[in-house]
């Protein structure tokens, strides 16, 4: 497995897609493991005082960069989860895309919102009904995204887009509505840019 390039790809996909992608558990765990190993390695080197500080600083800079990727990846997911929380609670299919920790978070978050609305005004209304379902905050699949083809794809027709024959060859770039290429990104045949 190519840890860092894969993390980079997952991060960029997540950043540019309107919806939440399946959580890449092995990737995140493995990255954290490697980071921990490298950190204790640096610590050990520091205490032995053999490696020049300059070199150790380079290692640390590398660690910070990878941590940035990891944090950003998890943060982007979390902010999407907050945004779509009421959809997630009502849809077990989206729930399966979250990590266990993310799912715990969204449950607490959703309760927080419900309680807040209840205490602020719902409890003062005569009509008691739980109408909170946010229909507005749904992923917008009509959004345009930039993407790149990772492997040749044949025999595809897009609804509102004319394609040339060799359009879906490896390495080609385009800007297109997300709904058209969604399945390819999920199958890893394309990546978002």
């Amino acid at each position: 497995m190519n840890l860092i390039p894969d993390l980079e790809k997952a991060w960029i996909n997540e950043k540019n897609s309107p919806e939440i992608f399946p959580f890449n558990e092995t990737l995140v765990n493995e990255t954290q493991n490697q980071l921990n190993k490298q950190e204790s390695f640096i610590f050990q080197q520091q205490s032995q005082n053999q490696t020049p500080t300059f070199i150790l600083n380079l290692y640390e800079t590398e660690i910070e960069r990878i941590k940035f990727l990891l944090r950003s990846y998890l943060r982007i997911r979390l902010r999407k989860i907050e945004k779509f929380s009421s959809n997630i609670i009502n849809d077990s299919q989206i729930q399966s895309l979250l990590s266990e920790k993310e799912f715990q978070f969204v449950q607490k978050f959703h309760n927080l919102i419900i309680n807040h609305l209840d205490e602020s005004f719902l409890s003062k209304l005569k009509r008691k009904k739980n109408f909170f379902q946010n229909k507005i905050d749904q992923p917008d699949f009509e959004e345009f995204v930039a993407c790149q083809v990772l492997e040749d794809i044949e025999n595809v027709q897009f609804e509102d887009q004319d394609l040339e024959d060799d359009d879906l060859k490896e390495g080609k770039l385009f800007i297109i509505k997300y709904k058209n290429i969604r399945s390819f990104v999920l199958e890893d045949k394309m990546k978002l840019l």
């Binding site: 954290q32 990891l70 998890l74 979390l78 920790k101 978070f105």
Partner: peptide, 17 residues
Amino acid sequence: QILEDYMNSLDLDLTQD
């Protein structure tokens, strides 16, 4: 509090960077 719990479970501070 909720955010803190989540970040503690990851052992990462997501509000950085």
